[in-house]
Simulated assay, not measured.
Amino acid sequence: MANNKLTDERIQELLLKFTRDSYRLNGSETGMALGDAVFALCELREHRIAEGALQRGYAAAEQVSFCLDELNVPKDAGYGPLSLWDRVYQYGEISASERAELQQRRKADEQEVR
């Protein structure tokens, strides 16, 4: 299995085996090497978890950007490009002003009906 990709399941199997063997060989050079291997495998596992979270974050940001593009929220404020979060804030401001206008129109319509 040395030539196969280290899957998450294989990493877990190796962690359990190396941890058990390093305790059994405590104090020997082999035991210390197994301890180092356990540490490296733990770092690899944590790196993969963080990388997966980062990829999910990128995908979500792309989706938000696409939606803002569809809603015609500007990408530039005249002084330079807006960050994604500035565009989200700007959309909120636009939506708030549109809601306020809609409420005023509804009030005006209600007064006309009376």
Rank of each mutant, 00 (worst) to 15 (best):
A2C: 03
A2S: 10
A2L: 09
N3T: 14
N3C: 10
N3Q: 12
N4G: 08
K5V: 12
L6P: 01
L6D: 06
T7W: 06
D8S: 14
D8F: 05
E9L: 12
E9I: 10
E9Y: 09
E9D: 14
I11E: 06
I11Q: 02
I11H: 02
E13M: 10
E13I: 08
L14D: 03
L15H: 05
L16V: 13
L16P: 00
K17A: 14
T19W: 01
R20I: 07
S22W: 03
S22A: 10
Y23V: 12
R24C: 08
R24F: 13
L25W: 03
G27A: 04
G27Q: 07
S28T: 15
E29C: 07
T30I: 09
L34K: 01
G35S: 11
G35Y: 00
D36C: 06
D36Q: 10
D36W: 06
A37I: 00
A37C: 04
A37E: 06
V38G: 01
V38C: 12
F39Q: 11
F39E: 13
L41G: 04
C42F: 01
E43T: 03
L44A: 05
I49V: 11
A50S: 06
A50I: 05
L54Q: 09
L54H: 10
L54R: 12
L54T: 05
R56M: 08
G57C: 04
Y58R: 12
A59K: 14
A59I: 11
A61N: 14
A61P: 00
E62Y: 13
E62A: 15
Q63G: 12
Q63A: 15
C67L: 15
L68F: 04
L68M: 08
D69L: 11
E70V: 13
L71R: 09
N72E: 14
N72F: 12
V73M: 05
P74N: 11
P74C: 10
K75T: 14
G78F: 08
Y79F: 15
L82M: 15
L84D: 07
L84P: 02
R87G: 07
R87L: 03
V88L: 01
Q90V: 04
Q90I: 00
G92I: 05
G92M: 04
E93H: 03
E93P: 02
E93N: 10
I94M: 13
S95A: 13
S95L: 12
S95Y: 07
A96E: 07
A96G: 05
S97V: 07
S97R: 10
S97E: 11
A100M: 03
E101I: 00
E101H: 01
L102C: 07
Q104T: 08
A108C: 08
Q111R: 13
Q111V: 05
Q111N: 09
E112K: 15
E112A: 15
E112R: 15
E112C: 07
V113H: 09
V113C: 01
V113I: 11
R114K: 12
